[in-house]
Computed example of a mutant assay.
Amino acid sequence: MSLTKQTIKILIVDDQTTSRLLMRDALQQIGFANIPFAKDGEEALKMMMSSPAHIVVSDYNMPKLNGLQLLQAIRTYPATRITPFILLTGSGDREVLQRAVKLGVNNYLPKPVQPAALQKAIQAVTGNLA
């Protein structure tokens, strides 16, 4: 089965409800339909272990597991090792971004996320989807 915007599953991970809803709305405007969310990295990791998403879009600054810890955990499991991971960060902290790159992040975006930037980041990791 080839992936389309209707079948691809994008997991949103953010501890702020408003941010999760804004991201979901932006993804729906782009045409995606399967958009579960997790309120923190720990919940996201459990979700990825039981029913992996095709793409993870995660905030950096969260309780329990932050975005980098989640990325590192996802990269250690064979079933999720190559899952595209887009990191969202409110800080322009170069050290965070350098650590993310070392851990294998696929893309990153500054918060607040603009729908057009999100679409470009997803296209960068998936190519053009129908």
Score class of each variant (00 low, 15 high):
110 P>V: 02
28 Q>Y: 02
35 I>V: 09
79 A>P: 01
82 I>S: 13
42 E>P: 00
27 L>P: 02
50 S>C: 07
123 Q>H: 10
127 G>Y: 08
94 R>A: 10
55 I>N: 05
113 V>T: 08
16 Q>W: 04
27 L>A: 01
50 S>V: 15
121 A>K: 11
76 T>P: 00
13 V>A: 09
85 F>L: 12
32 F>T: 09
14 D>I: 11
103 L>G: 01
18 T>W: 00
5 K>W: 06
123 Q>K: 13
119 Q>G: 03
105 V>R: 03
11 L>I: 08
80 T>Y: 02
103 L>W: 03
50 S>K: 13
54 H>M: 02
100 A>M: 05
119 Q>V: 00
5 K>H: 04
3 L>M: 10
118 L>T: 09
54 H>E: 14
82 I>E: 09
67 G>S: 06
21 L>I: 12
105 V>C: 11
64 K>Q: 08
18 T>C: 01
96 V>D: 00
127 G>I: 07
60 Y>M: 07
53 A>N: 03
37 F>Y: 14
34 N>G: 00
10 I>E: 03
121 A>F: 09
101 V>K: 14
117 A>N: 11
97 L>R: 00
84 P>N: 06
53 A>I: 02
4 T>N: 08
33 A>T: 13
103 L>T: 04
120 K>E: 14
42 E>M: 14
28 Q>E: 14
2 S>A: 11
1 M>A: 03
112 P>L: 01
37 F>W: 13
55 I>R: 06
118 L>D: 06
47 M>F: 13
128 N>A: 13
97 L>W: 02
13 V>I: 09
75 R>M: 10
112 P>S: 05
130 A>C: 05
44 A>I: 12
93 D>P: 00
105 V>F: 06
79 A>T: 12
105 V>Q: 04
6 Q>E: 15
128 N>D: 14
124 A>R: 04
23 M>L: 15
46 K>E: 15
55 I>T: 06
30 I>R: 07
31 G>M: 11
8 I>S: 14
71 L>Y: 10
84 P>E: 09
86 I>G: 08
